[in-house]
Every structure is written in C-alpha cells, then in structure tokens.
Design a protein around this nucleic acid. Structure first.
Lengths: 193, 193
DNA sequence: TGTACATTATACCAATCGGTATATAAGAAA
DNA sequence: TTTCTTATATACCGATTGGTATAATGTACA
C-alpha cells in the first residue's frame, strides 16, 4: 500500500470508530505513519479526504445496486438480489458502510453530511426506481412507491447496523442467506406467514 | 426560561444541526446568552450536558412507548398505537429525535454514542417485548422476534428521518394518520394489498 | 447587620484544531 | 550535470478546543 492508500485506510478506521468530526487529521497521519503535508498533498483538506473516501467506495456500492436492480425477474427476485448484494457489501465493507450510514443520519448542516448527501440521493433513486418499474406487477400504487423505497432501505440499513450493534451487546444478529430471505419475505408478505 | 434550560435548548439546536462533536461549548453558551462557567456549573462537562439532555427527553419517549405497548389489543392495534406515538413524538420533538438517531448511528467508540446506548437498549427491549408478548397470536416465531423488532423500528426510524430529509431535497414525506396506517399495514401484511 | 450559599462573569490554561511555508530528498528528463 | 517534478518532513501558524481559578454578584437566612 502506498501512502495515499494508507491514509485512506487509517481515516476509514478512525472515522468508523469515532466519527468524522471527532477524529483529527493528526491522528489519521500518525496511524498511517506519515505526516500532515502528505495528507494535504493528496487530498487538499480533511473534507477532500472524506470526499475521495466516499467516491471510491460508493462507486462499487452504487454499481452493484444498479446491476442487481436491472436483473431480469419479478419484484421479489429483484428485491432479494438487492438485499443480498447490500448485506454482502455491508459485510465486506463493514466499516465503510456503517460510517456512511452514520453520515447519512448526521446533522443536515454538518459539512460531512453535505458531502455524503449526493451519493445517498442517487442511491435512494435507484431503490425508488425498482418499485416504479414494478408498478405493473403491484397494481395501483397510489404513490406508495416512496413509502416502499423508504421502508425497504430502512429495514435493510437497520439490520446492517444491528449486526454490528449486536456484537457490542453480545447478541447475535447474523444475516445469513435464510435471514435475508426472511427479511425480504416479511417486507413483501408481512409477518403472518 | 432560566439559564439551565436556555443552555439545554441551544445545545439541542446546535447538536441537531451539526452534531455533538462538531459543536463547541463556546458556541452553545454564546447562543444561550451565558458564559462557560454557567454551563459547567449546571452540567459539569460537555458530556454531562449531553447526558442531561438525553435523560430529560428519553424519559418522555420511553414512557410513551411503554404505555402504547401495554394497551389492550391485538398486535396490529398495538403496533399502530406505537407507530402513532412514535411519529407524534418525532414531530413534536423533531430536533431531539433526529439527534438521538444520529447518535445511535454514530461510531461505537464515540463518547456520545456510549452515552446514548443505554437509552436505545431499553428502547429496543420494549419493542422486542411487544413481539414476544404477541407470540401466541403469531404462531411459531422460530426466534423471529428480533427480526421483527429490528425491522419495525428500522422502518419507523427511516420514515422519521426521511421526513426531514425530504424537506431538504424538496420532496414530500409527510406522515399523516393514513400514512401511519399504511406503514404498519405494510409491515404486517406486506406490499401486495 | 453579617454570613452563607447559589449563581455568574472575567480571564486564563494547556492541548488540539485544520492548515501551510519552507526545505529536502529522490527520480526522470535535458 | 542541471533542471524539473513528485513526494515527503520539520516546524510553524492563528484559532479553537474543553475546562477552570478566582472573584464578584445576588439572595436568603441568622
């Protein structure tokens, strides 16, 4: 790993653990084994570092969601594929995904939120697109697409977060393939089955 | 409002807008029209201020959820009541609820997260209790109580957050009584109805 | 009146914040 | 060899961080 990547990695580690605002640049460069001018050479500012961090990872995420959303199949199949990809991505990029979630929920006037907002928006639009494309299968949606999109991402994100939270409080919240199936099934058909 | 309350209010305003770590005590006391020793007289530290803020509001929240959860009725009725209370509380205490959500999603090693964690935990246990109490109505739960509790709170929280987010991007995400009904209905019976 | 307590301000602390001016080292191109 | 570019470190900047020592209020009670 070159210094640029070392900085990105140590920034992610620290941002994930304590959040963007609670971590200083000095700590980031110390952990990466470099000095501040190196960080400012590559990223220009602390916010620039965050931007590059988001760009590199979000590209993978959004591309994967788009692929899963464009697959052939009916709504249940697509939602299952999207959920599966989500949980896989969250597992293999756990620090990044949870950090991004934290940013999404952070104060609207926070600089870091404003940096992540465009990525989240395109993300949300892709999920919304799934339900709009499925309108023929769902009958009269009466504008419930948004409700579904919000509900679906809300369930997925909360489950992802609870996996990490569960480890902390020593409860088990693993998301196996069967669990993924149950989550999507519950979303589609409710809890009475 | 006395100085103590002025400090709590301006702290909430600022924490909500930019997050706990991004806001300094100087800014809080400036906004409240007092000076730092006054803040330290009442709260001892910045973290102590956060603690008092959480205590005062969480008590109202958790008490309301408990009442809604203990009401007579079948599961759908109880869940609707809980959701209704949640959305009402989030509307009337919007800044606080969204700030608490932000804390919940923030880094696990962040001091502020550790302060909010116990409140969230008792909160989660109350929701979990609803599903465990409803086990007779739901047949064999096969340990899905946790899944339901996480899913239900995930949906509610994400909707609450999207109301505020929607205002920002100029989309409408209002949660009327009918919307609340639809959200709970979708949770119970899925999207095909 | 005197005294004790609760409350608040002035003025300060060391440490850290994000960021940079300057110098230097290494490698490629001339 | 000289020069240019890339990449890095030393040492610093003013501003802000959370927090406090000290003193001055106001008020209540003796």
């Amino acid at each position: 790993m070159d210094n640029r990547e070392l900085i990105l990695q140590s920034a992610l580690d620290l941002f994930y653990a304590r959040g963007y605002d609670a971590v200083g640049v000095q700590e980031i460069v110390d952990r990466a084994g470099v000095t501040k001018p190196t960080l400012y050479y590559y990223f220009g500012s602390k916010l620039g570092l965050l931007q590059k961090l988001l760009e590199s990872q979000c590209q993978i995420l959004n591309q994967g969601v788009e692929e899963a959303a464009k697959k052939e199949g009916n709504l249940p199949e697509i939602l299952y594929g999207v959920a599966r990809f989500f949980f896989d991505f969250a597992a293999s990029h756990e620090k990044f995904y949870l950090f991004m979630l934290a940013l999404f929920y952070s104060g609207r006037e926070n600089e870091a939120f404003q940096t992540v907002a465009p990525f989240i928006e395109s993300h949300y639009n892709m999920i919304l697109g799934i339900f709009e494309a499925a309108a023929p299968q769902l009958g009269n949606m009466r504008g419930r697409q948004k409700l579904f999109a919000v509900g679906f991402t809300g369930v997925l994100n909360h489950h992802i977060m609870m996996v990490s939270y569960g480890r902390k409080i020593d409860e088990k919240f693993e998301i196996s393939n069967e669990t993924t199936y149950e989550i999507v099934h519950q979303f589609l058909y409710g809890i009475y089955t």
